[in-house]
Write a protein that binds this DNA or RNA. Sequence first.
DNA 1: CCACTCCTGCGT
DNA 2: ACGCAGGAGTGG
Length: 273
Amino acid sequence: MPEGPEVETVRRSLAPLLVGRMFGRPVVSRQGLRTPTTSQRLRPLEGRTVSALGRHGKLLWIDVDDGQGLLVRLGMTGRVVVVAQGTAPALHTHVRIPLDDGRELRYVDARRFGEVVRFANRGERDAARARLGPDGLMLDDEGRSRAASRLRATGRSLKDALLDQAVIAGVGNIYAAEALFLARLSPFRSGSGLDDDELARLLTAVQDVLQASVARRGTSFSDYVDALGARGDNLAHLQVFQRAGEPCRACGHGVQRAVQGQRSTFWCPRCQR
DNA sequence: CCACTCCTGCGT
DNA sequence: ACGCAGGAGTGG
């Protein structure tokens, strides 16, 4: 469910609740997450104090004081929340870690496409991070050129390429569509067919739509919430995503929907070429 | 490139 | 009953 902006919103809302807190004994009540986890595997985190939270693309991590930590991927329906111990667990609560302030960190995930795994040291954490392309929320010159060369080298459609986390990390189905609209590029164009101006437009558009969404605390259309249960406000600002049949906000032409790579794609055929 | 998989829930 | 959903991996 969450893309880069939603994960960043979770990170920002979670950090003040976790940093400086000591973990109690983790309890895993359901092993069948994407990467199976057990209470035993998370046990070495007991007694450690949270030092920082980080994010790259859709990957979230929680560092503790001795170099270990947790990697969290939310998949489609994952939620990380902090609630008072004793709060009745929401349906599909799979991981609970008590904190030393009477609260508790919980991972809730109906479809179980996400995961919560312990890393033993920073090297393991960084290895997971290294499989990702540059973070779309903060594309510096080096990130732009890495993403640009990946895009230029592919014959795949722009939509498919944007969903590849090794090209640009943090873009998912919503923001791929929105960035292509902002860049006025058809989702069916191929990466290798872009000229310099189009490529620059696309990368700038990716960063702009992601940053604008973070400023609104993400897009909530069904059940995405941050660590305090608050929804994001970006839904009303979407230009094409889930607007099939509605008029393009720029030109009035009907927004189209098609299936591309097994995922829905939304675009304005008049504005996007 | 494509199809198919994991899994649950919701709207039509 | 069916199609669809914010992700990501596998195998052809």
